[in-house]
């Protein structure tokens, strides 16, 4: 259970990191908090020649307010959200979801950028950030690119990173006054990877109504107009209008063949919507 004898570098800025990552003569792995990469290194599933530790880069641990959104550095941790060291602009959505990621000792080191780049379908950030409508910015030798969170994840364990690129920041929109959100994950044991995730956002001020079904076998399914599932979202109990059949059909069309699996995901989304409109 000891990693291979890798070389180690801790660059002081993003440019230094990009220069190291671009070295094609060696197997290079970027490490942030290392809470997913650490176990894989210990088990020698990952055997890099060089580990580039990006947690010494101050810029990646900063949060800036840009008016209608906050931009959070890739190395900001789950606990930073949970403890509100990152200001909450989502009516409690991100702090609440962050507090349910793995265990506290993991949250103290695990990072938002590491989680998104590791691209585990069962991880929390990819689903809730897709619902919120967040975007990410990557930087590389050819400059920077910005894309939506759901586009950043290509599939299981694959993020849209070209050679030499790293994720530098996540941009989180400030939700409107009347915005409502709900999140539900199905786990048999606290802290384990979810079997199904439902995430829901209705933000009339920004004209956003999004539903996300996560913890599939690939990237989450994002429905950009969740009105398809819950009608117009008005009335006393919008969750009553939840269309389980339409959701199940969507899942089936996406290749989820197992009926129990489908049902678990349908229920996760329904419960997420119910949580957005508590009785």
């Amino acid at each position: 259970m000891k990693p291979v004898n890798f070389d180690y570098a801790r660059p002081k800025d993003v440019a230094g990191a990009i220069a190291l990552i671009g070295d094609e003569s060696r197997t290079v792995k970027v490490m942030a908090g290392g809470q997913s990469l650490g176990p894989m290194l210990n088990m020698r599933l990952v055997q890099p020649d060089l580990v580039v530790d990006i947690t010494g880069i101050g810029e990646l641990k900063a949060v800036t307010d840009q008016g209608d959104r906050i931009v959070v550095g890739a190395c900001v941790t789950h606990a930073d959200f949970e403890d509100l060291r990152v200001p909450d602009v989502t009516h409690g959505a991100l702090p609440s979801v962050a507090s349910g990621i793995a265990y506290r000792a993991v949250r103290n080191r695990g990072t938002i950028g590491g989680s998104l780049t590791h691209a585990d379908p069962s991880a929390d950030w990819i689903s809730i950030l897709s619902a919120i409508g967040a975007s990410v910015t990557v930087e590389g030798p050819a400059g920077s690119r910005t894309m939506s969170v759901e586009d950043y994840m290509l599939g299981a364990l694959e993020a849209d990173l070209r050679p030499g690129e790293i994720l530098v920041s996540v941009s989180i929109p400030k939700l409107g006054k009347g915005a409502r959100w709900g999140y539900y994950k199905s786990c048999r044991k606290t802290g384990e990877f979810a079997h199904a995730i439902g995430a829901f956002l209705h933000d009339p001020e920004r004209g956003a109504s999004r539903a996300v079904i996560g913890a599939t076998e690939s990237k989450p399914i994002v429905v950009a107009a969740a009105t398809a599932f819950i009608g117009d979202g008005r009335g006393d109990k919008p969750a009553k209008g939840f269309d389980a059949n339409a959701t199940a059909k969507l899942l089936e069309a996406s290749g989820m063949v197992d009926q129990i699996d489908r049902q678990t995901h349908v229920v996760a989304l329904r419960r997420a919507i119910e949580r957005a409109y508590p009785a």
Partner: peptide, 12 residues
């Protein structure tokens, strides 16, 4: 902000 233990030392 950032992972516990990080940020106390210069580049390597």
């Amino acid at each position: 902000l950032g992972p516990a233990g990080s940020g106390h030392s210069s580049a390597v």
